[in-house]
Design a binder for these strands. Structure first.
Lengths: 209, 209
DNA sequence: GACACCATACCAACCAGTAGGTATGGTAAT
DNA sequence: ATTACCATACCTACTGGTTGGTATGGTGTC
Protein backbone atom coordinates (compact mmCIF):
# COMPACT_ATOMS: atom_id res chain seq x y z
CA UNK A 1 0.00 0.00 0.00
CA UNK A 2 1.58 3.29 -1.06
CA UNK A 3 1.71 6.29 1.25
CA UNK A 4 -0.62 8.08 -1.12
CA UNK A 5 -3.23 5.42 -0.64
CA UNK A 6 -2.97 5.31 3.12
CA UNK A 7 -2.91 9.04 3.24
CA UNK A 8 -6.30 9.57 1.73
CA UNK A 9 -8.37 6.81 3.23
CA UNK A 10 -8.06 8.14 6.74
CA UNK A 11 -11.75 8.95 6.87
CA UNK A 12 -12.59 5.40 5.95
CA UNK A 13 -10.10 4.18 8.55
CA UNK A 14 -11.82 6.27 11.17
CA UNK A 15 -15.21 4.94 10.14
CA UNK A 16 -14.02 1.34 10.21
CA UNK A 17 -12.50 1.95 13.61
CA UNK A 18 -15.74 3.51 14.80
CA UNK A 19 -17.68 0.41 13.77
CA UNK A 20 -15.40 -1.81 15.79
CA UNK A 21 -15.13 0.35 18.88
CA UNK A 22 -18.77 1.35 19.12
CA UNK A 23 -19.90 -2.22 18.65
CA UNK A 24 -17.59 -3.25 21.47
CA UNK A 25 -18.28 -0.53 24.02
CA UNK A 26 -21.38 1.28 22.90
CA UNK A 27 -21.62 4.87 21.75
CA UNK A 28 -21.38 6.79 25.00
CA UNK A 29 -18.45 4.82 26.38
CA UNK A 30 -16.54 5.21 23.13
CA UNK A 31 -13.95 7.94 23.39
CA UNK A 32 -12.83 9.79 20.32
CA UNK A 33 -9.29 8.81 21.19
CA UNK A 34 -10.33 5.16 21.20
CA UNK A 35 -11.44 5.54 17.62
CA UNK A 36 -8.28 7.42 16.68
CA UNK A 37 -6.11 4.78 18.29
CA UNK A 38 -7.96 1.96 16.53
CA UNK A 39 -7.53 3.84 13.26
CA UNK A 40 -3.86 4.57 13.89
CA UNK A 41 -4.46 8.31 13.71
CA UNK A 42 -4.67 11.26 16.03
CA UNK A 43 -7.30 13.71 17.09
CA UNK A 44 -5.99 16.25 14.66
CA UNK A 45 -6.96 14.00 11.83
CA UNK A 46 -10.25 13.12 13.46
CA UNK A 47 -11.41 16.71 13.79
CA UNK A 48 -10.30 17.42 10.29
CA UNK A 49 -12.88 14.92 9.03
CA UNK A 50 -15.62 15.23 11.66
CA UNK A 51 -16.82 18.20 13.63
CA UNK A 52 -18.27 16.33 16.59
CA UNK A 53 -18.52 12.87 18.04
CA UNK A 54 -22.17 12.68 17.07
CA UNK A 55 -21.30 13.53 13.47
CA UNK A 56 -18.93 10.58 13.47
CA UNK A 57 -21.66 8.31 14.77
CA UNK A 58 -24.12 9.48 12.15
CA UNK A 59 -21.50 8.99 9.44
CA UNK A 60 -20.77 5.57 10.89
CA UNK A 61 -24.44 4.66 10.73
CA UNK A 62 -24.58 5.76 7.07
CA UNK A 63 -21.36 3.91 6.36
CA UNK A 64 -22.84 0.86 8.06
CA UNK A 65 -25.82 1.09 5.75
CA UNK A 66 -23.51 1.13 2.73
CA UNK A 67 -21.38 -1.76 3.90
CA UNK A 68 -24.30 -3.97 4.83
CA UNK A 69 -26.21 -3.07 1.66
CA UNK A 70 -23.33 -4.30 -0.43
CA UNK A 71 -22.93 -7.40 1.69
CA UNK A 72 -26.56 -8.37 1.36
CA UNK A 73 -26.85 -7.36 -2.28
CA UNK A 74 -23.99 -9.67 -3.14
CA UNK A 75 -25.13 -12.54 -0.95
CA UNK A 76 -26.33 -15.81 -2.47
CA UNK A 77 -29.76 -15.87 -0.83
CA UNK A 78 -31.34 -14.13 -3.82
CA UNK A 79 -30.80 -17.12 -6.07
CA UNK A 80 -33.70 -19.46 -5.28
CA UNK A 81 -36.59 -19.19 -7.70
CA UNK A 82 -39.22 -19.47 -5.01
CA UNK A 83 -39.78 -16.33 -2.91
CA UNK A 84 -40.25 -18.29 0.31
CA UNK A 85 -37.00 -20.10 -0.36
CA UNK A 86 -35.34 -16.74 -0.80
CA UNK A 87 -36.70 -15.55 2.54
CA UNK A 88 -35.57 -18.71 4.27
CA UNK A 89 -32.19 -18.43 2.60
CA UNK A 90 -31.96 -14.87 3.89
CA UNK A 91 -32.57 -16.08 7.41
CA UNK A 92 -30.01 -18.83 6.97
CA UNK A 93 -27.57 -16.25 5.72
CA UNK A 94 -28.10 -14.16 8.83
CA UNK A 95 -27.42 -17.24 10.88
CA UNK A 96 -24.26 -17.95 8.90
CA UNK A 97 -22.99 -14.48 9.76
CA UNK A 98 -22.84 -15.40 13.46
CA UNK A 99 -19.11 -16.04 13.34
CA UNK A 100 -16.18 -14.74 15.33
CA UNK A 101 -16.46 -12.54 18.37
CA UNK A 102 -19.60 -10.68 19.41
CA UNK A 103 -18.44 -7.24 18.24
CA UNK A 104 -17.74 -8.76 14.83
CA UNK A 105 -21.26 -9.85 14.01
CA UNK A 106 -23.60 -7.74 16.12
CA UNK A 107 -25.34 -4.70 14.72
CA UNK A 108 -23.92 -1.21 15.03
CA UNK A 109 -27.18 0.64 14.65
CA UNK A 110 -29.16 -1.68 16.88
CA UNK A 111 -26.60 -1.13 19.59
CA UNK A 112 -26.56 2.63 19.21
CA UNK A 113 -30.32 2.93 19.02
CA UNK A 114 -30.73 1.60 22.54
CA UNK A 115 -28.50 4.27 23.96
CA UNK A 116 -29.31 7.35 21.97
CA UNK A 117 -32.96 7.15 20.98
CA UNK A 118 -33.98 9.75 23.51
CA UNK A 119 -30.91 11.93 23.59
CA UNK A 120 -29.58 12.26 20.01
CA UNK A 121 -32.56 12.49 17.64
CA UNK A 122 -30.46 12.86 14.49
CA UNK A 123 -28.43 9.79 15.35
CA UNK A 124 -31.56 7.86 16.22
CA UNK A 125 -32.98 8.71 12.84
CA UNK A 126 -29.81 7.59 11.08
CA UNK A 127 -30.06 4.27 12.90
CA UNK A 128 -33.72 4.00 12.03
CA UNK A 129 -32.96 4.59 8.38
CA UNK A 130 -30.38 1.85 8.40
CA UNK A 131 -32.66 -0.71 10.01
CA UNK A 132 -35.80 0.26 8.13
CA UNK A 133 -34.22 0.41 4.71
CA UNK A 134 -32.66 -3.00 5.18
CA UNK A 135 -35.99 -4.40 6.29
CA UNK A 136 -37.58 -2.93 3.16
CA UNK A 137 -35.32 -5.03 0.96
CA UNK A 138 -37.26 -8.07 2.15
CA UNK A 139 -40.68 -6.71 1.27
CA UNK A 140 -40.74 -7.69 -2.42
CA UNK A 141 -39.96 -11.31 -1.63
CA UNK A 142 -42.53 -11.37 1.13
CA UNK A 143 -45.17 -9.89 -1.17
CA UNK A 144 -44.28 -12.39 -3.86
CA UNK A 145 -44.58 -15.19 -1.34
CA UNK A 146 -47.93 -13.94 -0.15
CA UNK A 147 -49.42 -13.84 -3.61
CA UNK A 148 -47.81 -17.06 -4.80
CA UNK A 149 -49.08 -19.08 -1.87
CA UNK A 150 -52.31 -17.20 -1.39
CA UNK A 151 -51.48 -16.51 2.24
CA UNK A 152 -53.41 -13.73 3.88
CA UNK A 153 -53.90 -12.61 7.43
CA UNK A 154 -54.05 -9.45 9.45
CA UNK A 155 -50.40 -8.67 8.87
CA UNK A 156 -48.54 -6.79 6.18
CA UNK A 157 -45.37 -7.60 4.29
CA UNK A 158 -43.72 -4.62 5.95
CA UNK A 159 -44.60 -5.85 9.43
CA UNK A 160 -43.12 -9.28 8.73
CA UNK A 161 -39.98 -7.70 7.31
CA UNK A 162 -39.63 -5.62 10.46
CA UNK A 163 -40.32 -8.61 12.66
CA UNK A 164 -37.40 -10.47 11.09
CA UNK A 165 -35.20 -7.58 12.13
CA UNK A 166 -36.68 -7.52 15.62
CA UNK A 167 -35.99 -11.22 16.04
CA UNK A 168 -32.42 -10.82 14.82
CA UNK A 169 -31.74 -7.75 16.93
CA UNK A 170 -33.16 -9.53 19.94
CA UNK A 171 -31.00 -12.54 19.16
CA UNK A 172 -27.97 -10.25 19.39
CA UNK A 173 -29.05 -9.03 22.81
CA UNK A 174 -29.37 -12.58 24.09
CA UNK A 175 -26.00 -13.46 22.61
CA UNK A 176 -24.43 -10.54 24.42
CA UNK A 177 -26.19 -11.39 27.66
CA UNK A 178 -25.06 -15.01 27.51
CA UNK A 179 -21.70 -14.14 26.01
CA UNK A 180 -22.00 -16.56 23.12
CA UNK A 181 -23.64 -16.87 19.74
CA UNK A 182 -25.41 -20.21 20.25
CA UNK A 183 -28.58 -18.68 21.63
CA UNK A 184 -28.72 -16.31 18.68
CA UNK A 185 -28.49 -19.21 16.24
CA UNK A 186 -31.36 -20.95 18.03
CA UNK A 187 -33.43 -17.79 17.87
CA UNK A 188 -32.80 -17.39 14.18
CA UNK A 189 -33.87 -21.00 13.72
CA UNK A 190 -37.17 -20.10 15.35
CA UNK A 191 -37.51 -17.21 12.95
CA UNK A 192 -36.88 -19.59 10.09
CA UNK A 193 -39.52 -21.94 11.44
CA UNK A 194 -42.04 -19.13 11.73
CA UNK A 195 -41.62 -18.07 8.14
CA UNK A 196 -41.88 -21.68 7.02
CA UNK A 197 -45.08 -22.17 8.98
CA UNK A 198 -46.54 -18.91 7.72
CA UNK A 199 -46.18 -20.06 4.14
CA UNK A 200 -46.84 -23.72 4.88
CA UNK A 201 -43.37 -24.84 4.00
CA UNK A 202 -41.87 -27.60 6.10
CA UNK A 203 -38.15 -27.72 5.43
CA UNK A 204 -35.86 -27.18 8.36
CA UNK A 205 -33.21 -24.48 8.64
CA UNK A 206 -29.92 -25.21 6.98
CA UNK A 207 -26.98 -25.92 9.22
CA UNK A 208 -24.15 -23.55 8.55
CA UNK A 209 -21.22 -25.35 10.09
CA UNK B 1 -45.40 10.98 54.46
CA UNK B 2 -43.46 11.52 57.64
CA UNK B 3 -39.76 12.41 57.62
CA UNK B 4 -39.05 9.05 59.21
CA UNK B 5 -40.58 7.26 56.27
CA UNK B 6 -38.81 9.27 53.61
CA UNK B 7 -35.59 8.94 55.48
CA UNK B 8 -35.26 5.21 55.17
CA UNK B 9 -36.42 4.44 51.67
CA UNK B 10 -33.67 6.42 50.02
CA UNK B 11 -32.00 3.35 48.63
CA UNK B 12 -35.22 2.31 46.97
CA UNK B 13 -35.64 5.84 45.67
CA UNK B 14 -32.19 5.69 44.12
CA UNK B 15 -32.96 2.35 42.53
CA UNK B 16 -36.25 3.57 41.13
CA UNK B 17 -34.51 6.63 39.80
CA UNK B 18 -31.80 4.46 38.26
CA UNK B 19 -34.42 2.44 36.41
CA UNK B 20 -35.88 5.55 34.88
CA UNK B 21 -32.67 7.34 34.02
CA UNK B 22 -30.78 4.34 32.65
CA UNK B 23 -33.74 3.32 30.53
CA UNK B 24 -33.83 6.84 29.13
CA UNK B 25 -30.15 7.48 28.49
CA UNK B 26 -28.38 4.17 28.75
CA UNK B 27 -25.86 3.16 31.37
CA UNK B 28 -22.74 5.01 30.24
CA UNK B 29 -24.47 8.31 29.63
CA UNK B 30 -26.17 8.16 33.01
CA UNK B 31 -24.40 10.36 35.52
CA UNK B 32 -24.61 9.56 39.18
CA UNK B 33 -25.90 13.05 39.73
CA UNK B 34 -28.71 12.37 37.26
CA UNK B 35 -29.83 9.50 39.43
CA UNK B 36 -29.50 11.57 42.59
CA UNK B 37 -31.48 14.40 41.08
CA UNK B 38 -34.24 12.04 39.95
CA UNK B 39 -34.31 10.55 43.43
CA UNK B 40 -34.31 13.94 45.14
CA UNK B 41 -31.09 13.13 46.97
CA UNK B 42 -27.44 14.07 46.83
CA UNK B 43 -24.22 12.31 46.02
CA UNK B 44 -23.41 11.98 49.68
CA UNK B 45 -26.46 9.82 50.11
CA UNK B 46 -25.68 7.90 46.96
CA UNK B 47 -22.22 6.89 48.05
CA UNK B 48 -23.54 5.93 51.43
CA UNK B 49 -25.64 3.25 49.76
CA UNK B 50 -23.46 2.28 46.79
CA UNK B 51 -19.71 2.17 46.43
CA UNK B 52 -19.51 2.62 42.67
CA UNK B 53 -21.67 3.36 39.69
CA UNK B 54 -21.41 -0.24 38.54
CA UNK B 55 -22.61 -1.45 41.92
CA UNK B 56 -25.70 0.70 41.47
CA UNK B 57 -26.30 -0.80 38.05
CA UNK B 58 -25.96 -4.34 39.34
CA UNK B 59 -28.31 -3.55 42.21
CA UNK B 60 -30.68 -1.98 39.71
CA UNK B 61 -30.62 -5.14 37.59
CA UNK B 62 -31.40 -7.24 40.65
CA UNK B 63 -34.11 -4.81 41.69
CA UNK B 64 -35.48 -4.98 38.16
CA UNK B 65 -35.65 -8.76 38.47
CA UNK B 66 -37.64 -8.43 41.69
CA UNK B 67 -40.05 -5.86 40.33
CA UNK B 68 -40.72 -7.71 37.11
CA UNK B 69 -41.01 -11.06 38.88
CA UNK B 70 -43.77 -9.68 41.04
CA UNK B 71 -45.46 -8.04 38.08
CA UNK B 72 -45.55 -11.24 36.06
CA UNK B 73 -46.34 -13.47 39.01
CA UNK B 74 -49.42 -11.39 39.72
CA UNK B 75 -50.50 -11.03 36.11
CA UNK B 76 -53.68 -12.66 34.82
CA UNK B 77 -52.09 -14.67 32.03
CA UNK B 78 -51.68 -17.71 34.28
CA UNK B 79 -55.42 -18.29 34.48
CA UNK B 80 -56.27 -20.18 31.28
CA UNK B 81 -56.50 -23.93 31.73
CA UNK B 82 -54.78 -24.68 28.44
CA UNK B 83 -50.99 -24.21 28.40
CA UNK B 84 -50.97 -22.77 24.89
CA UNK B 85 -53.62 -20.29 25.94
CA UNK B 86 -51.42 -19.31 28.85
CA UNK B 87 -48.48 -18.73 26.52
CA UNK B 88 -50.57 -16.67 24.16
CA UNK B 89 -51.98 -14.75 27.09
CA UNK B 90 -48.44 -14.05 28.23
CA UNK B 91 -47.60 -12.61 24.83
CA UNK B 92 -50.78 -10.54 24.89
CA UNK B 93 -49.81 -9.30 28.32
CA UNK B 94 -46.42 -8.20 27.04
CA UNK B 95 -48.21 -6.35 24.28
CA UNK B 96 -50.54 -4.72 26.77
CA UNK B 97 -47.53 -3.38 28.65
CA UNK B 98 -46.57 -1.21 25.67
CA UNK B 99 -48.11 1.89 27.16
CA UNK B 100 -46.80 5.35 27.87
CA UNK B 101 -43.41 6.63 26.84
CA UNK B 102 -40.56 4.44 25.62
CA UNK B 103 -38.52 4.61 28.84
CA UNK B 104 -41.60 3.44 30.72
CA UNK B 105 -42.03 0.10 29.01
CA UNK B 106 -38.66 -0.85 27.57
CA UNK B 107 -36.34 -3.24 29.33
CA UNK B 108 -33.60 -2.06 31.67
CA UNK B 109 -31.42 -5.10 31.38
CA UNK B 110 -31.80 -5.45 27.64
CA UNK B 111 -30.68 -1.87 27.28
CA UNK B 112 -27.71 -2.24 29.58
CA UNK B 113 -26.60 -5.53 28.07
CA UNK B 114 -25.93 -3.92 24.71
CA UNK B 115 -23.59 -1.41 26.24
CA UNK B 116 -21.74 -3.34 28.88
CA UNK B 117 -21.45 -6.93 27.71
CA UNK B 118 -17.79 -6.55 26.87
CA UNK B 119 -16.70 -4.04 29.45
CA UNK B 120 -18.46 -4.86 32.74
CA UNK B 121 -18.66 -8.65 33.12
CA UNK B 122 -20.38 -8.61 36.50
CA UNK B 123 -23.05 -6.28 35.22
CA UNK B 124 -23.48 -8.34 32.07
CA UNK B 125 -24.04 -11.41 34.20
CA UNK B 126 -26.63 -9.61 36.34
CA UNK B 127 -28.47 -8.67 33.16
CA UNK B 128 -28.21 -12.21 31.87
CA UNK B 129 -29.65 -13.56 35.10
CA UNK B 130 -32.59 -11.23 34.85
CA UNK B 131 -33.40 -12.15 31.26
CA UNK B 132 -32.71 -15.84 31.57
CA UNK B 133 -34.60 -16.37 34.79
CA UNK B 134 -37.63 -14.60 33.39
CA UNK B 135 -37.46 -16.75 30.27
CA UNK B 136 -37.32 -19.84 32.46
CA UNK B 137 -40.71 -19.00 33.94
CA UNK B 138 -42.21 -19.83 30.55
CA UNK B 139 -40.65 -23.26 30.26
CA UNK B 140 -43.22 -25.24 32.26
CA UNK B 141 -46.09 -23.95 30.14
CA UNK B 142 -44.16 -24.64 26.94
CA UNK B 143 -43.38 -28.17 28.08
CA UNK B 144 -46.99 -28.73 29.03
CA UNK B 145 -48.07 -27.47 25.62
CA UNK B 146 -45.61 -29.73 23.86
CA UNK B 147 -46.81 -32.85 25.62
CA UNK B 148 -50.50 -31.92 25.49
CA UNK B 149 -50.47 -31.30 21.75
CA UNK B 150 -47.85 -33.87 20.88
CA UNK B 151 -45.74 -31.27 19.14
CA UNK B 152 -42.16 -32.16 18.59
CA UNK B 153 -39.37 -30.73 16.48
CA UNK B 154 -35.71 -29.96 16.70
CA UNK B 155 -36.22 -27.24 19.28
CA UNK B 156 -36.39 -27.23 23.04
CA UNK B 157 -38.78 -25.55 25.43
CA UNK B 158 -35.88 -23.43 26.66
CA UNK B 159 -35.04 -22.22 23.19
CA UNK B 160 -38.61 -21.16 22.52
CA UNK B 161 -38.74 -19.38 25.85
CA UNK B 162 -35.57 -17.51 24.95
CA UNK B 163 -36.87 -16.74 21.50
CA UNK B 164 -39.91 -15.02 22.98
CA UNK B 165 -37.51 -12.77 24.86
CA UNK B 166 -35.43 -12.15 21.77
CA UNK B 167 -38.51 -11.13 19.82
CA UNK B 168 -39.66 -8.82 22.60
CA UNK B 169 -36.23 -7.26 23.11
CA UNK B 170 -35.93 -6.74 19.38
CA UNK B 171 -39.37 -5.18 19.33
CA UNK B 172 -38.10 -2.63 21.85
CA UNK B 173 -35.17 -1.76 19.62
CA UNK B 174 -37.46 -1.15 16.68
CA UNK B 175 -39.76 0.93 18.85
CA UNK B 176 -36.82 3.07 19.91
CA UNK B 177 -35.56 3.37 16.35
CA UNK B 178 -38.94 4.43 15.06
CA UNK B 179 -39.78 6.41 18.18
CA UNK B 180 -43.13 4.75 18.75
CA UNK B 181 -44.59 1.57 20.15
CA UNK B 182 -46.72 0.54 17.14
CA UNK B 183 -43.97 -1.48 15.49
CA UNK B 184 -43.35 -3.31 18.75
CA UNK B 185 -47.02 -4.25 18.98
CA UNK B 186 -46.90 -5.61 15.43
CA UNK B 187 -43.81 -7.63 16.24
CA UNK B 188 -45.40 -9.10 19.33
CA UNK B 189 -48.38 -10.04 17.19
CA UNK B 190 -46.03 -12.00 14.97
CA UNK B 191 -44.65 -13.73 18.02
CA UNK B 192 -48.20 -14.61 19.02
CA UNK B 193 -48.85 -15.96 15.56
CA UNK B 194 -45.73 -18.09 15.66
CA UNK B 195 -46.68 -19.73 18.92
CA UNK B 196 -50.18 -20.33 17.64
CA UNK B 197 -48.85 -21.95 14.48
CA UNK B 198 -46.34 -24.05 16.40
CA UNK B 199 -49.13 -25.59 18.44
CA UNK B 200 -51.68 -25.53 15.65
CA UNK B 201 -53.93 -23.04 17.33
CA UNK B 202 -55.65 -20.49 15.13
CA UNK B 203 -57.01 -17.71 17.31
CA UNK B 204 -55.72 -14.21 16.67
CA UNK B 205 -53.98 -11.98 19.20
CA UNK B 206 -56.18 -10.06 21.55
CA UNK B 207 -56.45 -6.36 21.02
CA UNK B 208 -55.47 -4.47 24.10
CA UNK B 209 -56.96 -1.07 23.48
C1' DG C 1 2.56 28.98 -2.27
C1' DA C 2 -1.86 27.46 -1.41
C1' DC C 3 -4.40 23.87 0.14
C1' DA C 4 -5.55 19.43 2.12
C1' DC C 5 -4.09 16.55 5.53
C1' DC C 6 -2.36 15.29 9.88
C1' DA C 7 0.36 15.83 14.33
C1' DT C 8 1.38 18.00 18.96
C1' DA C 9 0.10 20.58 22.67
C1' DC C 10 -3.27 22.44 25.14
C1' DC C 11 -7.79 23.94 27.43
C1' DA C 12 -12.11 23.93 29.93
C1' DA C 13 -15.80 21.34 31.35
C1' DC C 14 -17.39 17.41 33.19
C1' DC C 15 -17.89 13.79 36.53
C1' DA C 16 -16.76 9.64 39.52
C1' DG C 17 -15.32 9.38 43.73
C1' DT C 18 -13.47 11.53 48.46
C1' DA C 19 -13.28 14.22 52.76
C1' DG C 20 -15.35 15.67 56.36
C1' DG C 21 -19.18 17.39 58.43
C1' DT C 22 -24.31 17.46 60.54
C1' DA C 23 -28.80 15.42 61.81
C1' DT C 24 -31.48 11.70 63.69
C1' DG C 25 -32.62 7.81 66.34
C1' DG C 26 -31.52 4.02 69.22
C1' DT C 27 -29.29 2.04 73.53
C1' DA C 28 -27.77 1.71 78.01
C1' DA C 29 -25.85 3.16 82.23
C1' DT C 30 -26.62 6.32 85.86
C1' DA D 1 -35.52 10.47 82.29
C1' DT D 2 -31.42 12.35 81.38
C1' DT D 3 -26.91 11.97 79.86
C1' DA D 4 -23.34 9.86 77.17
C1' DC D 5 -22.41 7.28 73.34
C1' DC D 6 -22.68 5.44 68.84
C1' DA D 7 -24.45 3.93 64.30
C1' DT D 8 -26.97 5.13 60.40
C1' DA D 9 -28.27 8.36 57.11
C1' DC D 10 -27.51 12.27 54.67
C1' DC D 11 -25.30 16.65 53.16
C1' DT D 12 -21.76 20.27 51.18
C1' DA D 13 -17.56 21.07 49.23
C1' DC D 14 -13.77 19.55 46.96
C1' DT D 15 -10.28 16.90 43.94
C1' DG D 16 -8.11 14.75 40.30
C1' DG D 17 -8.40 12.28 36.26
C1' DT D 18 -10.81 12.16 31.96
C1' DT D 19 -12.33 13.81 27.54
C1' DG D 20 -14.61 16.52 23.82
C1' DG D 21 -12.94 19.97 21.43
C1' DT D 22 -9.33 23.87 19.98
C1' DA D 23 -5.10 26.23 18.53
C1' DT D 24 -1.24 25.94 16.15
C1' DG D 25 2.33 24.19 13.40
C1' DG D 26 4.40 20.93 10.16
C1' DT D 27 4.44 18.16 5.68
C1' DG D 28 3.41 16.57 1.22
C1' DT D 29 1.00 17.58 -3.23
C1' DC D 30 -0.78 20.27 -7.00
Amino acid sequence: MTPTQTRHDSKKKLLDAALRVIRSKGYSATRIEDVCEAAGLTKGSFFHHFETKEELAIAAADYWSEVTSELFAGAPYHQPADPVDRLLAYVDFRKALLRGELPDFTCLVGTMTQEVYGTYPALREACNQSISSHAKTLVPDIEAAISKYGVRGDWTAESLALFTQAAIQGAFILAKAKNGSAVAADSIDHLHRYIGLLFNQTESPKETI
